[in-house]
Write a protein that binds this DNA or RNA. Structure first.
Length: 295
DNA sequence: GATCGCACTGAGT
DNA sequence: ACTCAGTGCGATC
């Protein structure tokens, strides 16, 4: 099947189509963050007027470009890591009537048996579909037990993303089925639907070690982060930070298993399978959508 | 069990 | 911020 012409389900969120512009702005912000590019500079570079960029960006991020810029600085990243100062979270959670913490409360997961893992997907039917998301095109994959894969790409890279995923379970049968994946996509990218009533079912397909790392990731609350070494300590292998990095990088259900919340000890983003810009976008987007009040 | 490669870290610049 | 080397560890054959 020609993945390039595969169905792309649009409009699962009102901000999905903003991402292309936002991505360019974020790339510029990251590259020139020392320069603190002005709104005018950014707007010109992405071919928008300052006011339309401001509006579009804020709709997407819940933050102005300036606010976003502050949210993705090293200092802010360090704050996400700070174990001792969850004051922001406490205040937020107490007053929380709206969106809750997605990952530790509202995702249920199961791990496939080691045998299933070793068979590299044999006997498994995986349904997949492409959906426009706040972070570009999302490739959603699911078995009948639940969500098993979530990948991201920009327009034109659909095939690469698919092959990247399919390599993990080469013996599975793949069926494009946008109707089957749409409910996952619309649920995942709409924070107003991050609620406990119907937890998102996730199937983790990986080695023992990887599963332990991914479960540790699921325990990181939104708007917090962990270092690779802290994650290593948490799973009982304090010196295995590098191996943890490798396992985090192999996470097949990105975003839902929040691998974007793993940072280097300095607060640096260090790496992301689907591109550092996307990791930055996710962290900024979460900051904008889940601060008690955006500043 | 050998070999490979890594989304680490810390020190030095 | 960037490079560099020392690393431990899991994955793979």
């Amino acid at each position: 099947m020609n993945v390039q012409t595969a169905t792309l389900e649009r409009d699962i969120t009102p901000t999905g189509s903003d991402y292309e512009i936002v991505r360019q702005a974020i790339e510029m912000i990251s590259l020139d963050y020392r320069e603190q590019p002005s709104l005018e500079t950014l707007a010109e570079a992405v071919g928008e007027t300052p006011s339309s960029l401001q509006k579009l960006f804020t709709r997407w991020a819940g933050l102005t470009p300036k606010g976003f810029l502050q949210a993705v600085t090293l200092n802010h990243a360090r704050r996400l890591l700070d174990e001792g100062a969850p004051l922001l979270d406490a205040a937020f959670e107490l007053g929380m009537s709206g969106p809750g913490r997605l990952h530790d409360l509202f995702v249920t997961h199961e791990a496939m048996s080691p045998g299933d893992y070793k068979s590299r997907g044999r006997g498994l039917t995986i349904r997949y579909g492409y959906h426009l998301s706040p972070f570009g095109i999302a490739l959603v994959m699911a078995t009948d037990r639940g969500l098993c894969g979530l990948a991201f790409c920009d327009a034109g890279e659909e095939r690469e993303a698919f092959e990247d995923m399919a390599r993990r379970w080469p013996n599975a049968a793949y069926v494009e089925d946008v109707a089957a994946t749409l409910p996952y996509a619309s649920r995942i990218f709409d924070p107003s639907r991050w609620q406990a009533d119907q937890p998102l079912r996730v199937v983790l397909i990986g080695s023992d070690f990887q599963i332990r790392v991914w479960e540790a990731l699921l325990r990181i609350p939104i708007n917090r982060a962990r270092t690779y070494s802290a994650l290593a300590a948490e799973i009982g292998n304090p010196s295995a930070s590098r191996a943890v990095g490798a396992a985090v990088g192999a996470n097949p259900v990105s975003f839902v298993v929040p691998c974007h919340r793993a940072l280097g000890k300095s607060g640096a983003l260090t790496g992301y399978h689907w591109g550092l810009t996307r990791k930055r976008a996710m962290l900024g987007w979460e900051a904008g959508h889940f601060q008690p009040q955006a500043t």
